[in-house]
Simulated scan of single mutants.
Amino acid sequence: MGNDTITEAEIEARNPATVADVFAGESGVLVGGGASIAQRVFVNGIEESLLSVTIDGARQNKSAFHHAGNVLLDPALLKSVDVSAGLAPAD
């Protein structure tokens, strides 16, 4: 997976109720966990706390409580999602 963008039209077509629904069909992105508050995003097998996650340019910290996911958001608020590999394959 290199750089990938999920457009507003794709998000609307998927009609996501959860973060997992946003990334449905994206081969390099997996969302795991039970309830929506506990879901975590994995990109190429790397868990979100080890990734650089930003929302509207603001970096998300990794201090969520215990069994909660690190990035809590309502997928209905998303206009687009960008997933980029970074400078090197290990980024």
Rank of each mutant, 00 (worst) to 15 (best):
A88T: 15
A20N: 08
V19M: 03
A58I: 15
L77D: 14
E48R: 02
V19I: 11
L30R: 10
G45Q: 12
V19E: 00
A64K: 09
R59G: 03
E48T: 03
A17D: 08
A17P: 03
A24F: 00
E48P: 02
A88Y: 14
E10V: 01
V83M: 04
A90T: 10
N70E: 04
L77V: 10
G34T: 12
G34L: 09
D74I: 07
Q39P: 03
G25A: 08
N15A: 10
A20L: 06
L30P: 04
L51V: 01
D56C: 07
E48V: 02
I46G: 03
L87F: 12
S27Q: 10
G45C: 09
S63D: 12
V43F: 01
D4V: 08
L50W: 07
V83I: 15
S80Q: 14
N15S: 14
K62I: 03
R59Y: 06
I6G: 09
A9R: 09
N44V: 06
T54D: 01
I6Y: 06
A9T: 07
I46A: 04
I11F: 07
V29G: 02
E8G: 05
E10H: 05
S36T: 11
I6S: 12
P16S: 12
D4R: 15
N3Q: 12
E10D: 15
M1N: 11
A88Q: 15
V71Y: 06
V41C: 01
L72N: 04
S36N: 06
D4L: 14
E26D: 06
L50G: 08
S63L: 14
D4P: 04
I6A: 04
G28L: 06
F65M: 10
E12G: 05
N3M: 14
L50V: 04
D82R: 11
V81F: 11
G25Y: 01
A24K: 09
G69Y: 00
A85H: 15
A85S: 15
F65V: 11
G57T: 12
Q60Y: 02
N70Q: 13
G28I: 05
P75F: 01
D82Q: 12
N15Y: 03
E26G: 02
V29F: 02
T18R: 05
A20V: 07
V29M: 02
S49R: 13
M1V: 08
V19L: 03
V71H: 10
G86H: 08
L72S: 09
S63C: 12
V83F: 04
G33V: 11
F23S: 03
N3V: 12
H67A: 13
V81M: 03
S36Q: 08
G57N: 10
G28K: 14
G45V: 09
E48I: 01
V83P: 14
S52T: 00
A68F: 11
P16D: 14
L77P: 11
L87T: 15
V83K: 10
K79E: 15
I46D: 03
S63N: 13
G32Y: 04
L50H: 13
S49Q: 12
